[in-house]
């Protein structure tokens, strides 16, 4: 009896999902992007055109109502002009891009052999190895960066080992340098490079490698002529996952870097917190986004064009 009663609502639900499935599938990510990307972006863009005042919130409203019911829209472009007037911002963007570039290259160099080894490993061991890559994510990111303070500091692990072995007589200053920032970034972002590389390398057709060696190519030649070119999409995907967040990175340079580590994240922080100038801070953020989006779009177009050309 109960089963017969329960059936109609269930089939109804299934029918509903069947009829609206498409909307569901497209709707969720679309609304996700609207709510968590487009709306915040619009809010930041709005603030970037206002003026800073001592009030709560600390910026002016763009829209004013006149007595006659007319609406006045005031856009203030001086915040953007300010970013060009003072060379600090351009220098900070440039040095962020530099740091992001070099740490992406370093991450790629470290990640490639690891991903290659995992992809070539027997399937059972592969899962264990992948697990080991993902495992550190179970600890808070902040804690993992803090751990590096203990490793790199003056009387930290590395220096104590070097001193006790007599390799150095004075502790080496590693913390609060750019070196520590690179170490922290490469360590933190390594999995983001390994995983896309792995998914690419694991799909590599063994027949191609066999054919290459049948035709007399040595393993090295096979690697550089077959494996490496075929893994370029994995390298691009991994590099994007590293490069883009590193540009705006704040926590790692703040904890491991020295005072002269100039990155746009820190500039944004001091505009927002020390100057209480939310409009200029927002303009810095918008410019950063534009700087990031343009090269990514160009890269995408290039990729799409090459895909079309080859097919």
């Amino acid at each position: 009896m109960t089963g017969a009663q329960a059936a109609p609502p269930l089939t109804k639900t299934l029918k509903f999902i069947g009829a609206h499935g498409r909307a569901l599938v497209i709707g969720v990510p679309m609304w996700w992007l609207i709510v968590f990307f487009l709306i915040p972006f619009a809010v930041v863009a709005k603030i970037s055109f206002s003026e800073a005042v001592i009030a709560r919130p600390p910026y002016t409203s763009l829209i004013e109502w006149t007595g006659e019911g007319a609406m006045l829209l005031k856009l203030n472009f001086s915040n953007y002009a300010y970013l060009i007037e003072d060379s600090l911002y351009i220098l900070a963007y440039w040095s962020s891009i530099k740091v992001a570039f070099f740490s992406t290259v370093a991450t790629l160099i470290v990640a490639y052999p690891m991903a290659y080894y995992i992809a070539r490993a027997p399937e059972r061991r592969r899962n264990v190895l992948l697990m080991l890559i993902i495992l550190p994510f179970w600890t808070s990111f902040l804690l993992r960066v803090y751990a590096w303070i203990g490793i790199l500091k003056g009387n930290g692990i590395v220096n104590n080992i070097l001193l006790s072995l007599g390799i150095t007589s004075e502790p080496i200053v590693m913390l609060q340098t750019n070196f520590a920032v690179y170490v922290g970034i490469v360590y933190t972002y390594l999995p983001f490079m390994i995983l896309p590389l792995f998914t690419n390398l694991v799909k590599l057709d063994n027949d191609l490698l066999e054919a290459s060696s049948d035709l007399g190519a040595r393993p090295m030649a096979t690697f550089f002529k077959i494996t490496l070119p075929l893994s370029i999409p994995g390298m691009i995907a991994g590099s994007m996952l590293v490069f883009i967040p590193v540009i705006g990175e704040f926590v790692i340079p703040a904890l491991l870097g020295g005072p002269d580590t100039l990155m746009i994240g820190k500039v944004l922080w001091s505009e927002f917190f020390s100057n209480r100038d939310w409009p200029v801070a927002s303009a810095v953020a918008i410019v950063m986004l534009v700087l990031l989006v343009i090269p990514i779009m160009l890269l995408r177009n290039a990729q799409a064009a090459s895909a079309e050309g080859s097919s």
């Binding site: 800073a52 001592i54 003072d86 060379s87 600090l88 220098l91 900070a92 005072p259 002269d260 580590t261 100039l262 500039v267 001091s270 505009e271 020390s274 100057n275 209480r276 100038d277």
Partner: peptide, 19 residues
């Protein structure tokens, strides 16, 4: 005031980073 704040923060960045 806001103007002095800006001067100060800018000097502070300059002291720290040399830029």
């Amino acid at each position: 005031n806001k103007r002095t704040d800006r001067v100060m923060t800018r000097l502070w960045t300059k002291i720290q980073t040399g830029k």
